[in-house]
Design a protein around this nucleic acid. Structure first.
Lengths: 200, 200
DNA sequence: AGAAAAATTAACCAAATGGTTAAACCAGAT
DNA sequence: ATCTGGTTTAACCATTTGGTTAATTTTTCT
């Protein structure tokens, strides 16, 4: 197996699959994009499903690794919020189509897709940070699940809804969507930290 | 044109399109689900694209109308938050696949899909509520765009990510995902209102 | 009742698509 | 040089799929 060819295929497959999804993707288009014959595609990855699985699991890792990495860093809850949001919005900005790709494929085939990847979120650490904060009355009571869904949702949703946000908020002005997203690197942590802070 | 047949078709088409997306949907399956012949399907809606457009625009409306309705209600910003979140999570729980369907199709074809529907969000009203709150120093400064993306994202994202949330948070326990979502009817408003409240 | 119009179906078609096959090409080993 | 193994290709195949056609059934109108 020629490594160069395999890489060309994986790059092409990633682009086509992420753009058009499993159903919309065409093996011919992947072959074209990779600059090879369609038969060669099947020579390297026997079936469309096999090639897709490879792309999907890599995609899953590249979207979940940043979460895990941030969870492994030391520091208190508030620095976690800061670094995670900044880091994650950067990652998402670089791969803006990944979230939609992953969520869509997972929703279309939950059991299979979830089983395909074995990722273990370092949840315990986060839970500890949160519970400590609650005990010391530094933050309002909140479950780890709600906290994580909130912070990820606030980062990911605007990426998923880019066409709508652009169309309804930034009709005329052109690249304002991008600055909107980048500014959220500051806005989201501020929002969350304020939400968690105990009032008096 | 037999109205009964048209309704049967639209119901079947909605189910199949929303479940499998434009690319994954099959005209034959829609015909089967509607209990009719495939030719009859084309007799009522000439092409797959035409049928899809109908389904999509109805879907868009049913997902955006609740937003607009909440925006038109009277009351201050905090009651808006309460009623909107409660109302919207109810709507989403009843149509859990709609958000993924809409976002996916829009991302796959932004210009066309956005142009397909003409919905005018009653943004001015919300902007006024927010700006008033800021002026009276009842809430922290926040742009209408960030506020709306936050509140919608907090409601919609957990619906989009159901398979992941179920798999990683509620592995063994069965229907806990649903209670998690329903509890967010209280958690989200609390979170947002706290986030907006001025500290002293 | 019977003609005209509308609704519905079975059979069919062309294009697209995932996948296969057999031959050609090309490197390194002998 | 040529044999051998892996690599690449052109041509091909079976199936699926959106869509059409012509005939049949059902309804409507007179």
């Amino acid at each position: 197996m020629e490594k160069v060819t395999e890489i060309k295929i994986l790059e092409a497959a990633k682009k086509v699959f992420v753009d058009k999804g499993m159903d919309g993707a065409r093996m011919q288009e992947i072959a074209d994009q990779a600059g090879i014959n369609k038969a060669l595609l099947h020579y390297y990855f026997r079936t469309k499903a096999q090639l897709f699985d490879k792309i999907f699991s890599v995609a899953m890792e590249s979207i979940f690794n940043p979460i895990n990495e941030s969870l492994e860093n030391d520091g208190n809850l508030f620095t976690f919020i800061d670094t995670f949001v900044d880091n994650y919005i950067t990652v998402l900005s670089e791969n803006p189509h990944l979230p939609n790709f992953i969520l869509n494929e997972i929703n279309k085939n939950p059991e299979r897709m979830v089983k395909l990847v074995s990722l273990n979120l370092n949840i315990a650490k986060l839970k500890q940070l949160i519970d400590e904060g609650i005990e010391n009355q530094e933050i309002i009571p909140i479950s780890m699940e709600n906290f994580l869904v909130n912070i990820i949702g606030l980062c990911v949703f605007p990426i998923l809804a880019k066409p709508l946000i652009s169309a309804y908020f930034f009709v005329s002005e052109n690249n304002n969507y991008n600055t909107f997203i980048q500014e959220r690197k500051k806005n989201i942590p501020e929002f969350i930290k304020n939400a968690l802070t105990v009032k008096n």
